[in-house]
Amino acid sequence: MPDPREEKMLYLNDFLYGAIFIIRNIGVALIILLTILTFIYVAAKDRLSPSKLGLVACSGIVAIVVLWTLPTILLKVRSEADSVSRIGTVYTNGGYR
Protein backbone atom coordinates (compact mmCIF):
# COMPACT_ATOMS: atom_id res chain seq x y z
CA MET A 1 0.00 0.00 0.00
CA PRO A 2 1.48 3.37 -0.98
CA ASP A 3 2.36 5.84 1.74
CA PRO A 4 -0.22 8.68 1.88
CA ARG A 5 2.56 11.18 2.55
CA GLU A 6 4.21 10.26 -0.75
CA GLU A 7 0.90 10.75 -2.53
CA LYS A 8 0.50 14.20 -0.95
CA MET A 9 4.03 15.10 -1.99
CA LEU A 10 3.22 14.14 -5.58
CA TYR A 11 0.21 16.47 -5.51
CA LEU A 12 2.32 19.21 -3.98
CA ASN A 13 5.00 18.65 -6.61
CA ASP A 14 2.44 18.92 -9.43
CA PHE A 15 0.93 22.05 -7.88
CA LEU A 16 4.31 23.77 -7.47
CA TYR A 17 5.35 22.84 -11.01
CA GLY A 18 2.12 24.34 -12.35
CA ALA A 19 2.57 27.46 -10.23
CA ILE A 20 6.13 27.95 -11.48
CA PHE A 21 4.94 27.50 -15.07
CA ILE A 22 2.21 30.12 -14.62
CA ILE A 23 4.52 32.57 -12.83
CA ARG A 24 7.19 32.17 -15.52
CA ASN A 25 4.72 32.85 -18.32
CA ILE A 26 3.15 35.85 -16.57
CA GLY A 27 6.63 37.21 -15.87
CA VAL A 28 7.72 36.78 -19.48
CA ALA A 29 4.55 38.54 -20.67
CA LEU A 30 5.16 41.44 -18.27
CA ILE A 31 8.80 41.77 -19.34
CA ILE A 32 7.80 41.77 -23.01
CA LEU A 33 5.16 44.42 -22.32
CA LEU A 34 7.61 46.60 -20.39
CA THR A 35 10.23 46.17 -23.12
CA ILE A 36 7.75 47.25 -25.81
CA LEU A 37 6.71 50.27 -23.74
CA THR A 38 10.36 51.19 -23.19
CA PHE A 39 10.96 50.81 -26.96
CA ILE A 40 8.16 53.27 -27.64
CA TYR A 41 9.46 55.70 -25.01
CA VAL A 42 13.07 55.55 -26.24
CA ALA A 43 11.99 55.80 -29.89
CA ALA A 44 9.89 58.89 -29.19
CA LYS A 45 12.55 60.52 -27.03
CA ASP A 46 15.73 59.83 -29.02
CA ARG A 47 14.34 59.64 -32.56
CA LEU A 48 15.07 55.91 -33.01
CA SER A 49 18.67 55.82 -31.84
CA PRO A 50 19.84 52.31 -32.85
CA SER A 51 22.23 51.93 -29.94
CA LYS A 52 19.59 52.71 -27.32
CA LEU A 53 17.01 50.48 -28.99
CA GLY A 54 19.58 47.66 -29.09
CA LEU A 55 20.32 48.19 -25.41
CA VAL A 56 16.63 48.02 -24.52
CA ALA A 57 16.19 44.85 -26.60
CA CYS A 58 19.21 43.16 -25.00
CA SER A 59 18.01 44.14 -21.52
CA GLY A 60 14.62 42.58 -22.22
CA ILE A 61 16.18 39.36 -23.50
CA VAL A 62 18.51 39.09 -20.48
CA ALA A 63 15.58 39.70 -18.11
CA ILE A 64 13.54 36.93 -19.77
CA VAL A 65 16.45 34.47 -19.64
CA VAL A 66 17.09 35.22 -15.96
CA LEU A 67 13.40 34.89 -15.09
CA TRP A 68 13.14 31.58 -16.96
CA THR A 69 16.27 29.99 -15.46
CA LEU A 70 16.04 31.30 -11.88
CA PRO A 71 13.75 28.53 -10.50
CA THR A 72 16.04 25.87 -11.99
CA ILE A 73 19.13 27.52 -10.53
CA LEU A 74 17.50 27.78 -7.10
CA LEU A 75 16.50 24.10 -7.25
CA LYS A 76 20.08 23.06 -8.02
CA VAL A 77 21.44 25.27 -5.24
CA ARG A 78 18.98 23.78 -2.76
CA SER A 79 19.83 20.21 -3.79
CA GLU A 80 23.58 20.88 -3.48
CA ALA A 81 23.30 22.66 -0.11
CA ASP A 82 23.83 19.47 1.91
CA SER A 83 27.13 18.73 0.20
CA VAL A 84 28.41 22.24 0.96
CA SER A 85 27.17 22.58 4.52
CA ARG A 86 25.89 19.66 6.57
CA ILE A 87 23.34 21.67 8.52
CA GLY A 88 21.12 18.67 9.22
CA THR A 89 23.77 16.82 11.24
CA VAL A 90 24.79 19.68 13.51
CA TYR A 91 21.90 19.37 15.98
CA THR A 92 21.03 15.81 17.00
CA ASN A 93 19.62 14.12 20.10
CA GLY A 94 19.03 17.39 21.92
CA GLY A 95 22.60 18.62 21.56
CA TYR A 96 25.13 20.00 19.16
CA ARG A 97 28.04 18.02 17.74
Rank of each mutant, 00 (worst) to 15 (best):
G18Y: 03
P50T: 08
A81S: 15
R5G: 05
E7A: 03
V90I: 13
A44R: 15
L12H: 07
I32E: 07
L75W: 08
I26M: 02
K76S: 01
T89N: 02
I20F: 12
I26E: 00
T89I: 03
R78H: 11
G88D: 10
L55S: 14
I36E: 06
D46V: 10
V90G: 01
L33C: 12
F15G: 03
I32G: 10
I20E: 04
A57W: 13
G95K: 11
A57P: 14
V42Y: 07
Y11K: 04
S49D: 14
M9W: 11
I22D: 02
I22F: 13
V42R: 04
L16K: 04
R78P: 00
G27Y: 06
I61N: 09
A63F: 14
L48T: 13
T72I: 11
S59R: 10
S59L: 07
T38P: 10
T38M: 08
F39Q: 13
V84N: 06
N93G: 05
G94D: 09
L30K: 09
K8P: 04
P71G: 09
K45N: 15
Y41D: 03
N13Y: 02
V62E: 01
L75F: 14
D14Y: 09
L55M: 09
T92Q: 06
V77N: 09
Y41Q: 03
V28D: 09
V84A: 08
K52M: 06
L70W: 06
S83E: 15
K76N: 12
I23Y: 06
Y91W: 11
P4D: 03
L33H: 15
G60I: 12
K45M: 06
A81V: 11
V66H: 14
R5H: 13
K45C: 05
I36G: 10
L67C: 08
L75A: 08
E6Y: 03
A43T: 11
G88C: 06
A63D: 05
G18I: 01
R78Q: 09
E6A: 02
I22A: 06
T89C: 01
G27W: 12
S79W: 14
L48E: 08
L53N: 00
A57Y: 15
P71E: 04
N13V: 07
L37F: 15
T35K: 15
G54H: 02
Y11F: 07
R24N: 05
D14L: 06
W68L: 01
A57L: 15
L53M: 14
I61K: 13
